[in-house]
Design a binder for these strands. Sequence first.
DNA 1: TCTTAGATAAGAATAATTCTCATATAAGAA
DNA 2: TTCTTATATGAGAATTATTCTTATCTAAGA
Lengths: 140, 140
Amino acid sequence: MYSDKNTLISVGLKITPQRIAVMEALHKLKSHPSAEMIISFIQKSHPHIAVGTIYKVLDLFVAKGIIRKVMTDKGVMRYDSVLDKHHHLYCSESGEIIDYVDEELDVLLKDYFERKKVTGFSIEEINLHLIGSYNKKKKE
Amino acid sequence: MYSDKNTLISVGLKITPQRIAVMEALHKLKSHPSAEMIISFIQKSHPHIAVGTIYKVLDLFVAKGIIRKVMTDKGVMRYDSVLDKHHHLYCSESGEIIDYVDEELDVLLKDYFERKKVTGFSIEEINLHLIGSYNKKKKE
DNA sequence: TCTTAGATAAGAATAATTCTCATATAAGAA
DNA sequence: TTCTTATATGAGAATTATTCTTATCTAAGA
């Protein structure tokens, strides 16, 4: 797997301490962190890195395809450093967002949309969002 | 189908002109409007309704289950007045969000997750988000 | 018509993100 | 190794989006 520096080089970006710090934060905060979580994390070890810089670097990484923005209905930006095809579990209790990977599911959805052909709409991506909660099994 | 007033009454809310205006806006702006779109729409005909009131009424409607928040990766709140089970098409060009309804898809997903049983995670809702674009067919 | 619990207006406050521009610096050239 | 310069960053102001506060208004039951 690429190192952080190699990733930057591979997309034509200069290696700066601030960018390395952001990438580290994204990898260590595994749970699709919000901008605020990333900022807090970074400022613990790099208190001099400006908030504006972090936002700018995050936007740059999204633009370069190094990370992706995550959909939420909370009105805050969250980020995903895992680029491989996956879906998300949204814990309605904790707010946690967990990756869900299953190739069978991907095939199922792909087949369905090849059959169904949503008229006039060219599909680029299919994301499944599962809302639920951990552990407390509903007794239905 | 319920009228706006009946909807309010059915969830124990008083009928106020501001609430009626918000409901009208939600029904007329069919495309999962952002808070800003709703505010702009309402202030054309009700310039005296305060922005804070609109936000408060929207939150109240979400809390009462009259409308729902829509997931986006844009960091702004958008709302959905259609409560029936459906999925969304996200147009990556226009930003438009369109409802997608297909019972077969719902059955497919339900069956899949009954077989798969995501360990320790109690599913409340399954939402499919299709990202793509209209009309310009990709020549693959 | 009166009463009052709850709703709203207005704008201040907060939170999240973007912008500006002087200064710093990564990295290629010499 | 030093120099150069195109690009990056810091700092905080500005903007945008949303929430809070509280005096006043009002929906609807009595």
